[in-house]
């Protein structure tokens, strides 16, 4: 079974700002996420929330805005039911902010007095799981790590799931948040980023760009000079988002391939939507 895979919407939250179906301007001075004054209030979008760690809160806010915008859109195929949504997010930074927060607590209060509510978020899947809690999702939930191509690999594997008919829609992308207060908790990612791509099974004439080809591999030896080296997870996610943003404006298919310092490789081709700008 090969089902066409459309990218019906995407959202980015970077140090440069928040963008929906467009890439925010880069070059912000700090590594942390930009302020988002219009962010949806957690109490409104996730009333059952207890005390989510900051990464989980940010992820819920961005995903809510993305899914709500998709569901409100008219003149396009209806949005997939949330209970049928899989979540597959790439991360190399993992839960480093919660990890360091928990360790700090152990140092301050003693080995026997770690914070249980912080420990819960010391899993890479904890922040994505907050999406399931907030939106009552019932699909599969996984994180993927493949060096600086973790987010790209998540999109590739999400596309494969849809193409094989294993799920109807998948919220994919990357979560690289390495800030705790004013401190960096990971040296892997130079800048924080949340990148969410909504992939859907769609008819070939759906009004969105489609992923026509995707591949992830591994090559410990340096790959060809023509291949782009993505030194950080955010650079790979921004390249993927930029190729989708270009495809949304029509023109030729966007083909990109690259590698990571860890030896992972990826390539993808995004074809423009047949009807032009959605």
């Amino acid at each position: 079974m090969t089902v066409p895979v459309a990218i019906s919407a995407f959202a980015l939250w970077t140090p440069g700002g928040v963008g929906f179906d467009e890439v925010p301007l880069q070059g912000a001075p700090g590594p942390g996420l930009a302020a988002w004054p219009d962010a949806p209030s957690l109490a409104k979008v996730h009333p059952r929330a207890r005390r989510p760690h900051a990464q989980a809160t940010a992820l819920v806010q961005l995903a809510h805005a993305l899914l709500s915008a998709r569901e409100a859109k008219t003149g396009v195929p209806p949005a997939p039911p949330r209970q049928e949504l899989d979540v597959l997010l790439g991360t190399q930074t993992g839960s480093s902010a919660a990890d360091l927060d928990f360790l700090d607590g152990l140092k301050t209060r003693g080995a026997g007095f770690g914070s249980p509510s912080t420990f819960v978020y010391t899993l890479a899947t904890a922040a994505p799981a907050e999406l399931a809690l907030a939106f009552r999702l019932r699909g599969a939930l996984t994180t993927v790590t493949a060096g600086s191509l973790s987010g790209v690999a998540a999109v590739a594997r999400g596309a494969a799931r849809i193409a094989a008919g294993h799920c109807r829609a998948c919220l994919c992308g990357g979560v690289e948040l390495g800030s705790l207060g004013g401190r960096r908790t990971s040296g892997i990612s130079g800048h924080d980023i949340l990148a969410l791509f909504l992939l859907e099974a769609a008819a070939a004439d759906a009004p969105w760009p489609t992923l026509q080809q995707w591949e992830v591999g591994f090559s410990p030896a340096p790959v060809s000079e023509a291949s782009r080296l993505f030194h950080t997870p955010e650079s790979a996610l921004l390249a993927l988002a930029s190729s989708i943003a270009r495809a949304r404006t029509g023109g030729a298919p966007q083909q990109l391939d690259g590698s990571s310092p860890e030896g992972h490789t990826a390539s993808w081709t995004v074809a423009p939507s047949p009807g032009g700008v959605p």
């Binding site: 991360t91 890479a124 899947t125 993927v144 790590t145 493949a146 690999a153 591999g217 410990p220 992972h264």
Partner: peptide
């Protein structure tokens, strides 16, 4: 997160995807 999978990939000569999954 990825260190164990990468070491295993080098040990077995993998050229396909090398993924670490969390659940």
């Amino acid at each position: 997160l990825g260190a164990p999978a990468r070491a295993l990939a080098l040990a077995c000569g993998a050229r396909g995807p090398v993924l670490t999954v969390g659940a």
